[in-house]
Nucleic acid binder design. Structure first.
Length: 481
RNA sequence: GGCCCCUUCGUCUAAUCGGUUAGGACACCAGCCUUUCAAGCUGGCAGCAGGGGUUCGAAUCCCCUAGGGGUCACCA
């Protein structure tokens, strides 16, 4: 039995989006399920587009999700000598050659091929370039690239763990570039070298890489490397069925986080895209590890749907430990201006009791904060429809004043006592409890929807409740005159 | 356009070797519960892309068509 070693190898050219995160998750699950090693590698051989801040953001996102890696991060930019060494070997073996063609020269051929409706293949101009000419070109200041000498005939076969046998005709593959003119390796080359050196057993990545795979196999064979096993997982598509990109709005882990999604919800939702567990859909990371297998990963691209993710987030919101939830909610309350930068113990305790009550009816942390504003602000507008419904008759004012008077006299202000008081008052006044409850809710929260009224009053406290009832009564009386 | 991959309710998916009233989840609708809104519970709507084969029998195997996606860079 060989050791399972897998890697997640993003290029730091943007935020970690849900597709990349899901690939990371599957690698993680596969490694953990097999007792193997999960490696983080940063494929940063593109100097132009790679940005250090993306590396930090990437690791931050993975930590937030709880996808801890065992080795790395390894940077390809730190391993340049190795690629050069391997390329030199290929050159010495005549399995690769220098090519002096300029990109512009090649562009002409490309344009012509496109016009003719044919695929463009490098014509092999420098394949057998005489020594003299090469020297002359070099002397003229041309920086060559290195191309792999690929077979013209035969086929390259990949036995993919998920997709089965995939065959490519070698005649459709040209002598592709493995080292750029700036001496940096291309993805197909660097990736093969590292996967071999790191003893990667399974390359688990998105399907978009499937058509690159024969090139990598050719590289590995030229280098004399044994091949890893490949598993190409289905892509995650945007709602418009196209590949995920910035223009699709919230797709990065960081964005989901800032919208108030919980890591366990995002993780659970992502796991369901392209894979299905046993009986239960709601599963924790440890359970995913127990149940994960590549055999149950399907081949169909999935369109992600935030509606289901949001539902799931609501579920996890209600399940979460209240103290933890309060901690996670802090930035959202700060953003609404409800909490100071450094909230004290008292404020955090109050937050926790609010969160524990309000979370039952919201689906994200952002909604949670939004639904909690009236606990912190005395000034708010009354819901317009609510006013029409509950503040229209002048006797409503009387009702509210009677309620305020009753509550004020309560020696104990808790769920039971307030409810008993209200039910008693309704009876003496000869009205239904609802006739008392609805105007009260509007009076103390400005809203027609929210937590159970008695929870709400207790959370607000006797003083504020009574004050707001009287304020509302005055509002109704003013309105009437 | 060439090459490669894919195709079960609107969306995510199940249906181990071909035999199921094609199952579940989200969403939606209805009812129950109820001080509102949620949640919860119960029920409902909704799918094998199309056409040919093979077979006693096909969502499942084969072929064709259509559709979708990916990829064709000195990006990964």
């Amino acid at each position: 039995m060989f050791e399972v070693r897998v890697r997640f190898a993003p290029s730091p050219t943007g935020e970690l989006h849900i597709g990349g995160a899901r690939t990371a998750l599957f690698n993680y699950l596969f490694a953990r399920a097999a007792g193997g090693t999960f490696i983080l590698r940063i494929d940063d051989t593109d100097q132009e587009r790679s940005k250090p801040e993306y590396i930090d953001a990437l690791m931050e996102a993975m930590c937030w999700l709880g996808l801890d890696w065992d080795e790395g991060p390894y940077m390809q930019s730190q391993n340049l000598d190795e690629y050069n060494r391997q390329a030199a070997r290929l050159l010495a073996d005549n399995r690769a050659y220098h090519c002096y063609c300029l990109p512009e020269e090649l562009d002409e051929g490309r344009a012509a091929a496109r016009k003719a409706g044919k695929p463009y293949l490098y014509p092999g101009k420098c394949r057998e370039l005489p020594e003299e000419e090469a020297r002359a070109l070099l002397a003229a200041g041309r920086a060559p690239v290195i191309r792999l000498r690929t077979p013209d005939r035969g086929e390259t076969v990949i036995d993919d763990e998920i997709r089965g046998r995939v065959t490519f005709d070698n005649s459709t593959l040209d002598d592709f570039i493995i080292v750029k003119s700036n001496a940096l390796p291309t993805y197909n080359f660097a990736s093969v070298v590292d996967d071999y050196l790191m003893k990667i057993s399974h390359v688990i990545r998105a399907e978009e890489h499937l058509s690159n795979t024969p090139r990598q196999v050719l590289c590995a064979r030229a280098l004399g490397f044994t091949l890893p096993l490949y598993a190409h997982v289905p892509m995650i598509l945007a709602p418009d069925r196209s590949k995920l990109s910035k223009r699709h709005g919230a797709t990065s882990v960081e964005e989901f986080r800032s919208q108030g999604y919980l890591p366990e919800a995002l993780l659970n939702y992502m796991a369901l895209l392209g894979w299905s567990p046993g009986e239960e859909e709601i599963i924790s990371l440890p359970t995913m590890i127990e149940q994960f297998s590549l055999a149950r990963v399907n081949k169909t691209a999935a369109i992600y749907d935030t509606v289901k993710l949001t539902w799931m987030n609501g579920y996890y919101l209600r399940e979460a430990d209240p103290a933890r939830l309060a901690r996670l909610a802090v930035p959202f309350f700060q953003k609404e201006g409800l909490l100071p930068v450094n909230p004290g113990d008292h404020e955090l305790r109050y937050l926790q009791s609010i969160v524990a009550t309000v979370r039952d009816r919201v689906k994200t942390l952002a909604e949670l904060a939004d639904a909690s504003t009236y606990f912190y602000r005395d000034h708010f507008n009354y819901d317009v429809k609510g006013v029409q419904k509950h503040f229209q008759k002048e006797e409503s004012a009387t009702l509210l004043r009677r309620a305020a008077d009753t509550l004020r006299l309560l020696p104990v202000f808790d769920q039971e006592s307030t409810e008993a008081a209200y039910r008693g008052l309704a009876e003496t006044l000869g009205v239904s409890t609802g006739q008392l409850i609805h105007p009260t809710r509007l009076a103390i929260s400005g809203r027609t929807i929210g937590p159970g009224l008695f929870d709400l009053m207790v959370l607000l406290g006797k003083e504020k409740t009574v004050r707001r009832l009287e304020k509302a009564a005055a509002y109704i009386e003013n309105k009437a005159t």
